[in-house]
């Protein structure tokens, strides 16, 4: 069955970033597409009914993968599989999140494309939030840099003005970072009910830095649980600290989960707490 977008007529493949941005700013009912696989999901749900054109970003040369001591830099059109296969030294949370995505989607889906959906179920969004990624955005002339939390304004609501696209992502590297990703879903590679990405810095037996990101069937984009992070930071790396911190997920206001046909909100909250505990215990080796 074709994409369920009755109004869709146009498909452009511009050759330059300027051309892409100009097409998008002069046609407010056009949307940029990267790999295009998420389009099917959103169109099947009837979410793209008024879209008249696709602007494919596939020919803009946004395919670079570079690593320095300070950053991993990825072009927006780098596919999940290309990132997985790259020889870059990747934080575990990134590799583990990539391997949670079905291989057929990894072949096509891009880093920038999934980011722009701001979708809580997309594994890499959770990992990139845990890693404090920065997003490169341009409207054609200059590039601005934006933190991922600000970028995730809401589901399908990236912080982009009309005519702006994402050109790349910078992931800060931290020496000795302990990180990991866990996911619970109803089928082996299904959309997550809850998923958790953690990135921790440990110094002399104490948690010095902690980022705990949660995704899954949320009412929002992926979120950081700052209550959990606060309960870790400055505390000794012990089972007690971790159990106590993970329990604060049960009352975290930022975690906005509802009851749906797959699970109740209480269940999802409990699951978040359990996955946080297990993931942290695993990455610190307890």
């Amino acid at each position: 069955m074709p994409f369920n977008i009755q109004s869709l007529e146009h498909y452009y493949t511009p050759r330059t970033v300027e051309e892409a941005c100009s097409l998008l700013s002069s046609n407010q009912d056009f949307i940029p597409i990267a790999g295009g696989s998420a389009i099917y999901i959103f169109s099947a749900k009837g979410l793209l009914q008024d879209i008249r054109g696709f602007v494919s970003l596939s020919s803009l040369g946004l395919n670079g993968i570079h690593g320095s001591d300070a950053y991993i830099e990825l072009g927006a059109m780098v596919t999940h599989q290309e990132l997985l296969e790259s020889r870059l030294d990747k934080p575990s949370v990134l590799s583990e999140a990539l391997l949670a995505i079905p291989k057929e989607v990894r072949s096509v889906g891009t880093v920038g494309g999934q980011l722009c959906t701001c979708f809580p179920n997309f594994d890499l969004n959770v990992a990139l939030l845990a890693l404090d990624a920065e997003i490169m955005v341009t409207g054609g002339d200059q590039v601005r840099r934006e933190g991922i939390e600000k970028f995730f304004r809401g589901v399908l609501e990236p912080d982009l003005r009309p005519g702006e696209i994402v050109t790349g992502i910078k992931v800060p590297r931290k020496r000795g970072l302990l990180s990991g990703y866990s996911k619970a879903a109803l089928t082996a590679h299904g959309f997550s009910l809850i998923s958790v990405g953690v990135a921790l810095e440990v110094n002399r037996g104490f948690f010095e830095g902690a980022r705990v990101a949660v995704g899954g069937a949320l009412n929002t984009s992926p979120v950081r649980l700052k209550g959990v992070e606060d309960a870790l930071r400055g505390h000794p790396v012990t089972r007690e600290t971790i159990v106590e911190a993970s329990e604060s997920a049960l009352s975290e206001g930022a975690l906005n989960v509802g009851t749906d046909n797959k699970a109740s909100s209480e269940y999802k909250r409990r699951l978040a707490s359990v996955l946080i505990k297990r993931t942290i215990l695993r990455v610190v080796g307890l």
Binding site: Y11, Y40, S58, E104, V108
Partner: peptide, 11 residues
């Protein structure tokens, strides 16, 4: 390998 049902034909 790709899911052809989620792959824009023009791509």
């Amino acid at each position: 390998p790709v899911y052809s049902c989620m792959y824009p034909a023009l791509a």
